[in-house]
Design a protein around this nucleic acid. Structure first.
Lengths: 369, 369
DNA sequence: CGCAGGTTCTGAACCGTTACCGTCGCTGTC
DNA sequence: GACAGCGACGGTAACGGTTCAGAACCTGCG
């Protein structure tokens, strides 16, 4: 027992073999193919391993030889820690974790903060010892994504961007938002404002011109705006006159200030459409501060269907985020069917308390301080 | 351009070197030590790499050679996906992710489901290519923990178990719970029931005898129960007569049914003390169903200080879960100070609406269906 | 007795990279 | 003109395993 601890260099498969007077192959087999050697010898190997403090084959060396790491990598737009603050991201992670767990695979969160300089940053992707990547909702021109695609391992993209030749999991953002838009039109809304998430990697907090909308580097936001345009294009003379406010940070605070921007430009809006629940919840908070009643005075809608939205009675489009994660994981782990594959998940329009019919047009509005 | 795609075997550092007519070392240096070769040669190397579709040095081979993986492993008691359902675990993950990110390290979630058979299960720990492990709140006799300790990499344990020779991050569960107990005593409570989380790896849903309390394989639960005993031992003739109900699953449903068990045994309890907020929220739901008013009819307390508890007005002990995660990560990543080290984080008794003074002892109780 | 067939174990070839140390050519100095 | 100093690059040996084609031995059968 004493000797095991003493040895300077940690035991390796080779040193174990030497100690036992057998070949390395045999020791390897003792761990990986018990049927390839006699039970007695195997027991003797394991016993000696215990005595020498040999922890079993080194995972990295094994990975090098077998060409598999037993883990999948996850790439996110935001900082890692953000992922644990965003309800939708958490739910996605849960689904992905389920898939990984079912397959006995680890899940490696790749640190890809947007701030780090590009060279250093892609390094994290290059250093990840994984069998494949799940990419969750990154901009079209994300440098990490480029690094991922360069790696000779499979990848699955969830939400955005949509790439030919790469497996994809997502929803029909455009159609979903269009159906929400039609519902609002049915309620009489014609004078709406929009709050959307960032449209590019550059920070741009403010009103968005049509060109920036169309050129948005985030496919999901682009599609949702287009969906709204589809719906309102039929009843409005010019979609381009509808005010759209962009926010870089995806927080309730962003939603609040964006709502304020909209009301400053047009106090007579009858509805504020947000491209995420978080933003919508922020908008609600701002309206509450201004003593505007929802939905009597103004309608608010979100997108995602997070639990918080339910508590707030927010009208939204609910999407199966957990299923997205699970589907992405399964796609990555199952390479049997011909690629590229696409999984399109269903969404559901959830009408709740924050939207209602417009009032008579001449009703005076109270627009607090 | 055509040739790069054609090549049967993917390019390696060696094949690149051959193509260029330089040594492998030089190619390696082009990537890892730009200062070790002339800019022109370096550019030529990178250019050829691009042409051949060489994605840069293989991460696994590099890890084998450099003896570092650039990632830390996380071991949890529960299934991976559970971690994303428990508010406290999520918060811990957030903190840990912050620490990892700051150090440019990845975070590998090790799939260690309790159900899998022991042999297979520890394999996930053995297969993880990581530079160290963070172990979050596992039982004393967890086989995965044993596997972690066997690996020749550093480890940090958060919460439980407490091990000599291993870095530790935690709180003073015993003192925290004792102070909560003293508060209840001050309010006049003498007739209390307790709901606790699982005390062992075996499923045992029901009342707990004193022996099982003391022998609990979960240090944290043991300490919290002991803290309560410390407080109530001073005013009660025999702590052992206090009913304690254990639940294996950590869900609100567990809290509800456990509260029901307690009330079935003693309808005249004046307080239900839960060792977690989740359980307490479940208990509150059950009491609500029975039309028992809190705190007029009965007092409820939790432990952890999750956001949901705040919304519910739950009296609880708040602990800095985010800081725990961050501290654990930092401890693991910073091996400079002498080990083992211990970080003891502060807790705070948060008195909210769910606890109040006892009523006159003779007041009749309404105990619903 | 000879041989097919099975079990048990070995030898050698990788897997792709980086660490370590040595070599080579050039420059500056006395 | 010999030589120290220095920057740029090359050769070799690990790093710790897995794999595959056999070798050696045993068994059973005709």
């Amino acid at each position: 027992m004493g000797r095991s601890v003493k040895s300077r260099r940690p035991a390796t498969l080779a040193s174990l073999a030497a100690e036992l007077g057998v070949s390395r192959t045999t020791v390897s087999n003792a761990y990986n193919r018990p049927d390839q050697l006699s039970p007695e010898l195997r027991e003797r190997v394991l016993e000696t391993a215990r005595r020498l403090g040999y922890p079993g084959p080194d995972p990295v060396a094994r990975s090098l030889r077998t060409r598999q790491a037993g883990a999948v990598g996850l790439l996110l737009t935001e900082t890692l820690s953000y992922a644990f603050r965003d309800p939708a991201a958490i739910r996605f992670l849960e689904g992905l974790a389920m898939a990984c767990e079912a397959a006995g695979q680890g899940l490696l969160l790749v640190p890809a903060s947007p701030e780090a300089d590009e060279r250093e940053t892609a390094a994290a992707v290059h250093r990840a010892g994984v069998d494949g990547f799940v990419v969750y909702s990154v901009p079209d021109d994300d440098p990490h994504l480029a690094a991922v695609l360069q790696r000779p391992v499979p990848a699955v993209v969830c939400d955005q961007p949509r790439l030919r030749d790469v497996d994809h999991v997502g929803i029909d953002d455009r159609a979903a938002m269009a159906s929400l838009g039609k519902h609002l039109i049915g309620l009489g809304h014609r004078r709406i404002g929009v709050v959307c998430m960032r449209l590019g990697r550059d920070r741009h907090d403010g009103f968005v011109d049509p060109q920036r909308q169309r050129q948005a580097h985030f496919h999901v936001q682009r599609a949702r705006l287009a969906g709204l345009a589809d719906a309102f294009g039929e009843v409005l003379p010019d979609w381009n006159t509808v005010p759209v406010v962009e926010r870089f940070d995806h927080t309730m605070g962003s939603g609040s200030s964006a709502a304020a921007d909209l009301l400053a430009r047009d106090p007579h809006l009858t509805a504020i459409v947000c491209t995420s629940d978080i933003l919508a919840l922020g908008a609600l908070a701002e309206l509450h501060r201004r003593h505007l009643r929802v939905p009597e005075d103004i309608t608010v809608t979100g997108f995602d269907g997070v639990p918080e939205a339910e508590r707030a009675g927010l009208t939204t489009v609910s999407q199966p985020v957990l299923d997205k994660g699970r589907a992405a994981g399964r796609l990555l782990l199952d390479r049997s069917s011909p690629q590229p594959r696409t999984v399109m998940l269903p969404t559901e329009l959830v009408i709740r308390a924050t939207c209602g019919p417009t009032k008579e047009p001449d009703t005076p509005w109270f627009s607090g301080v």
